[in-house]
Nucleic acid binder design. Structure first.
Length: 588
RNA sequence: GCGCCCGUAGCUCAGCCGGAUAGAGCAACGGAUUUCUAAUCCGUAGGUCAGGGGUUCGAAUCCCUUCGGGCGUGCCA
């Protein structure tokens, strides 16, 4: 099913071409107000200006040349030269019926130019527990990966975890001290059970105990050379950490799996080559004792060229080195057409420089797209970076647990008679959904204020609003049997649809726009376009629900209403659960 | 100093390539339930889109500038 907005764009552009002899964009948009119709074309005014003709007159000619009666009522010309379009009932009905036959994709077409897309997201530093700072990259990246997937691209998720570096020396040192002989995984868990505390203690010892610090440095050397027990310790720590964050991913319905892990350690033995290559091709030079590359256009405080440092004066490599190795790997081994990095906005300059270096080195060219998808900081209710009352970082697990707990209280208040197990599962879906949705629904570039009270108020533009709309539809379906309504039978037997209420049409018009919403969201990697659509859809449904009885509707009205319910439920479920990773519930 | 992001209703935020009278939610006020879940719906009120200038048929949106906030700016990631 071709996107309606695209069809309209093409038809009107064609008419413009016919009239003016030139190519102009029709600039079709959803109408600003219902009284202007359903869609409007704004392109005539710009075209008239360029062609130096009267816009109203041009609009008349365009409308006269326009072949569109299969889709719209007679177009109207308004204002300085807008062309207003109103969809025909017959067209709406045809689209709905087409969606009805496409259970999986709701009429959303796959891309005709599939690509290999690498999405790099989440990337926790595994020495520590995941905290709120990891939330945005994890879920925004996941939504991007899901959307690209759905559009038919080959998506390669990459979890670039921080599993290498000097901090692992001190962790191994403490590990060594705590447990000299690792026999199986159980004692490992015991030692690392409170990973955060383990890290803090190691850090404390490292800073205060000279002998311990020496052991830590010795451990780093051992890690690199592979001598001694250090690799084994390291593996235990890494494995234990992975267990921890895979648990969080599962809680969050994030699609990252073990196979997506490709941490810093993976690139460790490639770093020397990267530096060597860049030296050989003359890009990397020594400066103040470090090996640097100076991409054009970047300056430091003194206005001098700013370097990307790839090797410190002591010989050690840096994260820029690892990032370059990863970039090269993704292009050359994973054959990426597009690489999307989902990290916070503070790293914008780092990635800009990185991309510049990759281009200088000839690793990428104009056929490969490198995107840094940025997002703002999560703030507490006082507007400062989000912390616990005592000033510590908030652990992701604690935050999610609290959300679920709060949701459980609401479920208990609203629906105390449900079985305990079902109440618990609703609380999970609602609580986690609320946290994710609050993040998704904001423009990712702005900092946003995290507030349990707001996101779990469960009124207005929140995940529960949509989950509720979905649950109401499911409730209708459950009641249907008792009222001798055979939904499946009626849906299968529909041949014509009759609109008798504006609320039906408003809902239908939104339903057929799902493809457009996804397209906008994926094009700019902005999940909030998708949440905005789903909210509009749910609102249209709620209006429809209060205006139009379904099961009691007469035989003429009921097929359409059943179809609208079914398509709405499927769209909400698909949007929430397949694209945003937010669970839906049958009852709430 | 330079660079990036941000400034929209009392609060939290949308506003897609410049389009018609700038939109939601929360809070406030008033209404709606013998009928499929009221976690809902309908209505009222609320704005110098930080200020100024420019581009043009048209600017919250693009450009310049001032103010205010955040972040980054050579060996952390």
């Amino acid at each position: 099913m071709k996107r309606l907005a695209d069809i309209l764009e093409q038809r009107i552009s064609a008419a413009l071409q016919k009239v003016t002899g030139q190519a102009f964009a029709a600039m079709v948009r959803v109408a600003a107000e219902p009284k202007f119709g359903d869609y409007q074309a704004n392109g005539v005014m710009a075209a008239a200006k360029q062609a130096k003709t009267n816009p109203r007159q041009l609009a008349e000619q365009v409308v006269a040349a326009l072949d569109i009666q299969d889709i719209c009522e007679k177009p109207e010309i308004a204002g300085p030269g807008f062309i207003n379009l109103r969809l025909k009932d017959s067209f709406l009905a045809a689209r709905l019926l087409e969606m009805n036959t496409d259970k999986d994709r709701l009429g959303v077409e796959k891309t005709d130019t599939p690509q290999t897309v690498v999405v790099d997201y989440s990337g926790p530093n595994i020495a520590k527990q995941m905290h709120v700072g990891h939330l945005r990259s994890t879920i925004i990246g996941d939504c991007i990966a899901r959307m690209y997937d759905f559009e038919g691209h080959t998506v390669i998720r990459q979890n670039h975890i921080g599993d290498w570096g000097t901090q692992f020396g001190m962790l191994c040192a403490l590990f060594d001290e705590r447990f000299l002989q690792i026999s199986d995984v159980t004692p490992t868990r015991k030692i690392l059970g409170e990973l955060e505390a383990f890290y803090i203690e190691a850090k404390k010892r490292f800073d205060s105990d000279e002998q311990f610090a020496n052991t830590a440095r010795f451990a780093v050397a051992g890690l690199h050379s592979g001598e001694g027990p250090w690799r084994t310790y390291w593996e235990s720590i890494v494995r234990e950490s992975e267990r921890h964050y895979c648990e969080i991913y599962e809680k969050l319905s994030v699609t990252l799996k073990d196979k997506d892990i490709r941490g810093e350690s993976f690139y460790a033995d490639k770093l020397a080559d990267v530096v060597q290559t860049l030296k050989q091709n003359g890009l990397a030079v020594e400066s103040e004792g470090a090996i640097c590359i100076f991409p054009e256009g970047f300056k430091n405080k003194e206005g001098e060229p700013l370097p990307v440092i790839i090797q410190k004066s002591d010989g050690a490599f840096l994260y820029a080195t690892t990032d370059l190795a990863a970039l090269q790997f993704r292009v050359q081994e994973l054959h990426a057409d597009t690489i999307i990095y989902v990290t916070d906005a503070r790293q914008a300059q780092h990635f800009a420089m990185l991309f510049a270096v990759a281009k200088m080195a000839g690793w990428t060219d104009d056929t490969i797209e490198l995107m840094h998808i940025t997002f703002g900081t999560m703030l507490g209710e006082d507007g400062t970076p989000f912390k616990t009352r005592t000033g510590g970082t908030v652990k992701l697990k604690d935050l999610l647990d609290e959300a679920v707990q709060r949701a459980a209280a609401v479920v208990e208040a609203k629906n105390p008679d449900l079985p305990a197990e079902q109440k618990a599962s609703i609380a999970r879906a609602v609580g986690i959904g609320a946290v994710k949705y609050a993040d998704y629904s904001n423009n990712r570039n702005s900092d946003y204020i995290f507030s349990f009270d707001k996101m779990l108020a469960m009124e207005g533009n929140t995940a529960p609003y949509m989950q509720y709309a979905y649950a109401r539809i499911k409730s209708i379906e459950r009641k249907a049997a008792g009222k001798d309504v055979d939904i499946e039978g009626e849906l299968a037997g529909i041949t014509t649809l009759t609109f008798t209420d504006e609320a039906e049409k408003d809902l239908a018009k939104l339903l057929i726009r799902y493809d457009q919403a996804i397209d906008a969201a994926v094009r700019e990697c902005r999940p909030n376009y998708l949440t905005g659509y789903l909210y509009d859809l749910s609102q249209a449904f709620s209006r429809f629900y209060s205006a139009c009885p379904v099961l009691q509707a007469d035989a003429r009205q009921r097929p359409l209403r059943l179809l609208l319910c079914d398509l709405t439920a499927r769209t909400i479920r698909h949007g929430l659960s397949e694209l945003l990773g937010i669970e839906v519930v049958e009852q709430m």
